[in-house]
Write a protein that binds this DNA or RNA. Structure first.
Lengths: 237, 237
DNA sequence: GAGTGGTCTAGACCACCCT
DNA sequence: GGGTGGTCTAGACCACTCG
């Protein structure tokens, strides 16, 4: 395990364990350097990670402070799949509607940059959060990368399987969101009415190598989905 | 101007100017070190920034590559206010409905951590994107920080004014999103019908010092708002 | 195995906050 | 002015990719 990663985890764990509130000041840099017996740059890197994840904020000349979201019950929109997933907070379950190996249609080929003869796994699920219908999700995985899937795997966390069993590491993803009215089929699965509001999210997942391997379309139940999202001004031009 | 910031900007400018496509390989580290005459760490920092902004991705042992979003016409959900704003792409205008100095209500006090006698500027606007109604926005600014606002300022970019005229720098923000049905008043402003779908976003902006100073509630027109959002797995536990 | 990015260090110096 | 975070350097060594 990398030093800066380990330190970031320890600091985050400490914040959660001691349940520190927004604005609580953490030990200063020199103290952290002593505590963890590493160089300044390593601490700085660990802190940068925590800052970009919204766990802390740093104020030049002043100190390092805990950052907390104000509201509970919102799903972290950036970490709700593939990545760190704060699912500890929520109970996620799935009902599998379909798992099959198919030829990609035009839309899938366009998004995954693939050819008609590249097979893809088609997965369709209804997902539940703490017992309530959260969303209906339809995903397409390149079979050349995701070599095998079945119903049991898909009923559980697919990304956990990809990582643990297949050694697939996600590099990054693009999300596209829009809002609209539910069509009849989706409405049925979500126990809502045609024309009810819905959040539509299309997402493309890439390997660390930059190759897209998963294209996914999700329709969220408007009454059971609330998201939160933290931004930083680290960087910018 | 900081070296790493300047380098990040130059690299990004080059990518845009030469209109490089996804997967195009950039010069390697040693070349960049020579080109910009700085140390390795400085280049690495510049690249980390570009990576976190979704401009490039780096593959260990292989190279540095251009990252591009696949689709046009989507608003960058993380950079659409306060921050870098890729508004070059879109024409944003506003119609001001109200600018006034008021006493905060309970909801505003809770979000801005303030007292009944802390005055706040109330700003209500309809915003248009390339001529179409984009959203209706209601914001509350702590007067102790945002000392002055008027209709002319508010008709333009408020954040540009905060930064340039008042020297206010935003540190970070929290966004809360949900989807639901339009109420009559908002529907009227958006030229939609009651019960039509809408995206609701509540956002809290903080100074670099960690103090919240702006609480904002936005209702988006579902037919004219599409967002995109890039994630990385930089970091994570 | 050559090439490329990633980690880590020690230390100098800068910029900002606060009292 | 003392304390705290931020920038930048030079260089050693590690880890991954690809032919």
């Amino acid at each position: 395990m990398l030093k800066y990663q380990e330190i970031a985890e320890k600091i985050e764990a400490k914040i959660h364990k001691e349940n520190l509130t927004q604005g609580t000041r953490l030990p200063n840099l020199s103290q952290l350097i002593k505590d963890y017996e590493v160089s300044k740059s390593t601490i700085v890197k660990a802190l940068t990670i925590l800052e970009s994840r919204g766990v802390i904020y740093q104020v030049q000349g002043s100190g390092i402070f805990v950052r907390r979201r104000k509201r509970q019950g919102y799903i972290n929109f950036l970490e709700n799949q593939g990545f760190t997933a704060d699912l500890d907070e929520f109970q996620l379950t799935s009902k599998v509607l379909d798992v099959s190996l198919i030829a990609p249609n035009e839309e899938v080929m366009r998004n995954l940059n693939c050819q008609p003869d590249d097979q893809v796994y088609h997965v369709k699920r209804v997902r539940y959060i703490t017992g309530q219908t959260l969303c209906i999700e339809e995903s397409f995985y390149k079979q050349s990368i995701v070599t095998y899937l079945n119903e049991a795997i898909v009923a559980d966390s697919i990304f956990h399987y990809l990582n643990q069993a297949l050694g697939i590491r996600i590099g990054f993803s693009d999300k596209y969101l829009s809002v609209g009215k539910l069509q009849k089929e989706a409405a049925t699965y979500l126990s809502l009415k045609s024309g009810d509001p819905a959040l539509f999210v299309e997402e493309l997942f890439y390997l660390t190598s930059g190759e897209p391997f998963d294209f996914s379309k999700t329709t969220y139940h408007y009454e059971h989905s609330q998201f939160f999202l933290q931004s930083n001004s680290i960087h910018l031009s």
